[in-house]
């Protein structure tokens, strides 16, 4: 239980730090560019996660959904 609680505290600290962060709507020109998105190349991420899913034990973190495979 200790670990999920620490995670929760980290998340809370992260959110509470938000008040001093952020931009006004007219300051979003750079953030609106495709290259500035969290996943600017979805297929690169998809293919990478498929490779590492079949070559390593760890998975997940970036998102959920999308399907499984035997990958042996």
């Amino acid at each position: 239980m200790k670990l999920p609680i620490s995670i929760f505290l980290i998340l809370t600290a992260f959110i509470s730090g938000c008040s001093s962060w952020g931009v006004q709507p007219w300051e979003r020109n750079k953030l609106a560019e495709k290259k500035m998105q969290l996943e600017p190349a979805l297929l690169d991420s998809y293919l990478d996660s498929h490779i590492y899913y079949s070559k390593e034990t760890s998975s997940g973190g970036a998102g959920v959904g999308g399907g499984g495979c035997g990958c042996n």
Partner: peptide, 23 residues
């Protein structure tokens, strides 16, 4: 799988994301 996440715009050129995935 369950996922909880927060994405925050830091400034005009910086974006940050934190996710917790429980499976």
């Amino acid at each position: 799988d369950l996922i909880l996440g927060v994405t925050q715009v830091i400034n005009r050129t910086t974006l940050m994301q934190l996710n917790l995935n429980i499976g």
